[in-house]
Simulated assay, not measured.
Amino acid sequence: MRVNLHIDGAEAVAEIDRPGESLLSTLRDRLGLTGSKNACEQGECGSCTVLLDGAPVCACLVATAQCEGREVKTVVGAVPRPVRDAFVQCGAVQCGFCTPGLLVAVADLLDREPDPSDPEIREALAGNLCRCTGYEKIIDAVHTAAATLAGEPR
């Protein structure tokens, strides 16, 4: 089965063997786009979060066959540099396994809400699990990124 997608602003064609193949498997195994991480494969951890037509989804739960003609943004295409830089600056990156999904979720949040409160940040990141940082550094990174994107020094 041939599926045509728009991934990070470029056209892509995936040849899949079965209609139930996950978008995550297609991205990583067929297209070599390894930014989204494969962790739980049950939609519980958020490591594979991508934007599908502008909405955050766990790529492990979406069938590639459902993505014909749709826009997919991975951590490569969805995350502005100030968000990535803020994660590094604030020490929000530890082992890095959850980082791609967190970055996509943060980029989505800041696109919708340029100056989120702590409760808004926690809500936006509720589907992303991190076992290393304790989340406070991640929340600091979101505030830092928001300030940078708004043009304010932080």
Rank of each mutant, 00 (worst) to 15 (best):
T34Q: 09
L109M: 11
E136I: 08
R154D: 04
Q94H: 06
G69S: 09
G43V: 06
L23R: 02
V75M: 09
D118E: 14
A146C: 03
D53L: 00
R70I: 10
E44S: 13
S47E: 14
P100I: 01
E44D: 15
A78V: 00
P82I: 07
N38L: 06
I16A: 09
G35D: 11
V76Y: 10
R81W: 02
R84L: 05
R84W: 01
A92Y: 13
A63Y: 06
G9V: 04
A146Y: 05
D29Y: 04
G151E: 08
A65S: 09
E15W: 08
E120K: 14
G101S: 12
D8T: 01
S22K: 07
M1E: 05
L27E: 11
A39H: 05
A55T: 03
V72A: 11
R122T: 04
I139E: 02
P82D: 05
N4C: 00
G54H: 06
L33P: 07
G127D: 01
G69N: 05
A124P: 03
P153L: 06
V93H: 02
V88A: 15
P100N: 08
E68H: 13
S47P: 02
V88S: 10
V72D: 10
K37Q: 14
A63K: 01
A146G: 04
M1W: 03
A78G: 09
D85N: 12
A10H: 15
I121Y: 07
V142K: 07
L33V: 07
S36T: 15
T144M: 10
R84K: 13
G91N: 10
G54N: 02
T144L: 15
V142N: 08
D29Q: 14
K137Q: 14
